[in-house]
Simulated scan of single mutants.
Amino acid sequence: MEITAGGLLEIRITPADVGERVSVRRVGHRPGGSPEFTDTLGVLTSWNEGVLLITRKNGQTVRIAESSLVAGKVVPPAPARRRGPAASFEELTRVAARSWQPLESEPLGGWVLRASGGFTRRANSVLPLGDPGIPLDDALARVTGWYAERDLPAYVQAATGAAGTQEMLCAELERRGWTAEVSAEVRIGALAPVGDVDAAAAGSVRLTRAPDEEWLARYGKVTDPDLARRMLVEGPSVWFAALPGGRAVGRCVVDGRWAGFAAVTVDPAHRREGLATAVMAALARRALEEGASAAWLQVETDNAGAHALYDGLGFATHHTYHHYRAAA
């Protein structure tokens, strides 16, 4: 908190600081009447009619009455804690979008509406990397109508821990009743250490350019195999990995310096045998041969087992994205 030379707390933020990362302290009262102080760190996404909205890194929006503030200041961006390559939010998001290319897309200003028959939210959601060019309510009405025409729910993919405009969009969606159904971390790391892993089963991994029936069966998220194949093979340079008997599978998209890992799935009967590591090591070696040097992946925030795997391989969180679904 900001403390003066005289030891007093000061409020050094104003509505002009909307979009900045701030730290604030507010005061409340316990049941017995004694004061209780609460600190909040995040992006100031709005300050209207005496109420501040601050969006934390995890996407949660905190409402704070201006009258309860006792201190506040603008703080610098969070220090970089990630290992491996440097990357901007926009670069990573565009690379990720190319790895899950939609069957149909339409621009709306700086937004892209994407549809693919419902296979994966990533290819059936709005990617808002700029201004839609029209008022937000009009843009969201256009979005819900566009997806309704395709008999699909309307989703907007927006991020926290990335950029102020993205976090402001999260807050605006929540204010309008949109619900974050799924949240996932985007993690990055150096590619060479993944390829260097000495996984006993790596030599048995088979690499192909298209998924077969056994691969699709292990992946397990397929209701329309033909649609899934069309989607999964699209990308700059796509590889599929599988261990005999479908014990483990994975997918990697090589795009310039980046190798994107996805769909790493292990037969429950063979977990904790290092099979996921073996699949990723084999894919990483292929990506290194194609000139890639950096790696990225997406993992849902509640997948503790995958977090442990990726921590061990040197991946660190870059930002978190959320799929917001339109209110019914």
Rank of each mutant, 00 (worst) to 15 (best):
M1T: 03
V264T: 10
D198F: 08
G245E: 03
L173T: 09
R325I: 13
A278N: 06
T144V: 10
P35S: 04
E104A: 15
R12L: 08
V266Q: 06
A80F: 09
V24M: 14
V233R: 02
L108S: 11
P85R: 09
H323G: 05
P211Y: 09
W47Q: 03
H29Y: 13
D137W: 09
A65I: 10
P107R: 14
A248R: 10
R82F: 10
F240C: 14
H270V: 12
T208L: 07
G305T: 12
G19C: 12
V75H: 10
S125K: 04
G235I: 06
E273F: 14
R176S: 08
L288I: 07
T277W: 00
A141V: 00
E167G: 07
V205D: 02
E90T: 06
V43N: 05
Q60W: 03
Q60V: 12
T165G: 08
G189T: 01
V182D: 09
L275V: 11
R229L: 07
F37I: 11
R63G: 01
V22E: 01
E181V: 08
T4N: 05
A141Q: 01
R114T: 13
P153C: 14
E2K: 11
E300S: 08
E185N: 07
L191I: 13
A97G: 04
T120Y: 03
L52A: 02
P128C: 06
